[in-house]
Computed example of a mutant assay.
Amino acid sequence: MSAESVRVGGRVIPLAHATSWVSSYFDADANRTAKKPWGYPFYDHMVTGTGPDTLGDGDLLASALLNAAPTIRGFRTLQSMRPILEAGLAAIPPDLTLEAAVTNGSHAARLAGLAEVLDRPDPDEEWADVKGTILMKTLHRKRPLFVPLYDSKVYACYVGPAQAGYPMARDDKRTWACFFTRLAESMIRDLANQPEAWSVLAAAAPADVAPLRLLDVVAWSAGKGGG
């Protein structure tokens, strides 16, 4: 892989394009006055008065700042999920990186502690209107070093034909817990295999931006056709 490009799943993007996306997205001053601002710093620095293991009602609405607002039913669902999700967060040390967890093999169980809530049967529609996008965008703020962000644009980068370089094949029978385990492994592979490119991208963002947040911005732009 050329140092002039960066790979995100099956998409290869010119590094200059990716750097421009990152620089624009994380321009806090511009976002505070723009008519159509990006989510930084509003999502990342949202003050809810809760600790790292607690999901207050404000935390359950955080995904709205990434254009993935829960419906009223979805908010009610997140409230119902709260004890399960808080237990899952408590099992993840705040300083644990996804890279370290993938390296030692502990990522699957910890991700399952969060994502398995989506795989539970819901004959009474108890978990209505909440899927992977809202769940991960809700949880990432609590564990930015560990929980990957996800939406349809990220899916477009990582799921596709193997012969075209995509790391994950489409599998409609795969559980959410399995999906996020595979996605995490693929993301860490991208970050670990291209340290020079990600160093360039990190330099274009504020120092407090985690690698998974950087990757999400690049994947979102590439997944919507920017790559």
Score class of each variant (00 low, 15 high):
residue 178 C to G: 12
residue 128 A to I: 07
residue 35 K to Y: 10
residue 137 K to W: 02
residue 30 A to V: 08
residue 220 W to S: 11
residue 207 A to L: 04
residue 54 T to G: 06
residue 10 G to Y: 05
residue 57 D to I: 14
residue 101 A to L: 00
residue 20 S to G: 11
residue 137 K to D: 01
residue 17 H to K: 02
residue 108 A to M: 10
residue 80 S to G: 08
residue 155 Y to H: 13
residue 194 Q to N: 12
residue 194 Q to V: 07
residue 60 L to I: 02
residue 193 N to R: 09
residue 64 A to H: 07
residue 93 P to Y: 06
residue 163 Q to L: 11
residue 163 Q to Y: 06
residue 206 P to N: 00
residue 14 P to A: 06
residue 97 T to D: 07
residue 123 P to Y: 09
residue 140 H to Y: 05
residue 21 W to K: 05
residue 108 A to K: 11
residue 151 D to I: 13
residue 5 S to I: 02
residue 28 A to C: 13
residue 35 K to W: 10
residue 142 K to W: 05
residue 147 V to N: 00
residue 136 M to N: 10
residue 28 A to Y: 15
residue 38 W to L: 10
residue 89 L to F: 09
residue 148 P to K: 01
residue 111 L to N: 05
residue 17 H to R: 03
residue 205 A to S: 02
residue 221 S to H: 15
residue 66 L to S: 09
residue 45 H to S: 02
residue 222 A to Y: 08
residue 34 A to T: 06
residue 133 T to K: 15
residue 156 A to W: 04
residue 49 G to R: 01
residue 69 A to G: 02
residue 167 P to W: 08
residue 218 V to N: 11
residue 138 T to Y: 12
residue 146 F to N: 02
residue 181 T to K: 01
residue 76 R to T: 15
residue 101 A to M: 00
residue 111 L to F: 03
residue 119 D to R: 07
residue 7 R to Y: 01
residue 130 V to A: 10
residue 20 S to F: 04
residue 33 T to D: 13
residue 14 P to C: 08
residue 1 M to R: 05
residue 63 S to H: 13
residue 106 S to T: 15
residue 90 A to C: 03
residue 22 V to Q: 03
residue 205 A to I: 06
residue 18 A to I: 00
residue 2 S to V: 07
residue 91 A to L: 01
residue 194 Q to C: 07
residue 139 L to Q: 03
residue 225 G to K: 13
residue 219 A to E: 10
residue 132 G to P: 04
residue 20 S to R: 12
residue 13 I to M: 10
residue 122 D to Q: 14
residue 106 S to A: 15
residue 73 R to G: 11
residue 222 A to C: 06
residue 214 L to K: 00
residue 105 G to H: 05
residue 169 A to N: 07
residue 57 D to E: 15
residue 98 L to S: 02
residue 156 A to Q: 10
residue 200 V to T: 11
residue 177 A to I: 05
residue 203 A to C: 08
residue 215 L to E: 12
residue 90 A to E: 02
residue 127 W to C: 04
residue 29 D to A: 15
residue 14 P to N: 07
residue 36 K to C: 07
residue 92 I to V: 05
residue 112 A to K: 10
residue 196 E to W: 00
residue 181 T to V: 02
residue 210 A to Y: 05
residue 194 Q to I: 12
residue 217 V to M: 06
residue 111 L to R: 00
residue 35 K to T: 15
residue 170 R to G: 08
residue 172 D to W: 07
residue 73 R to M: 12
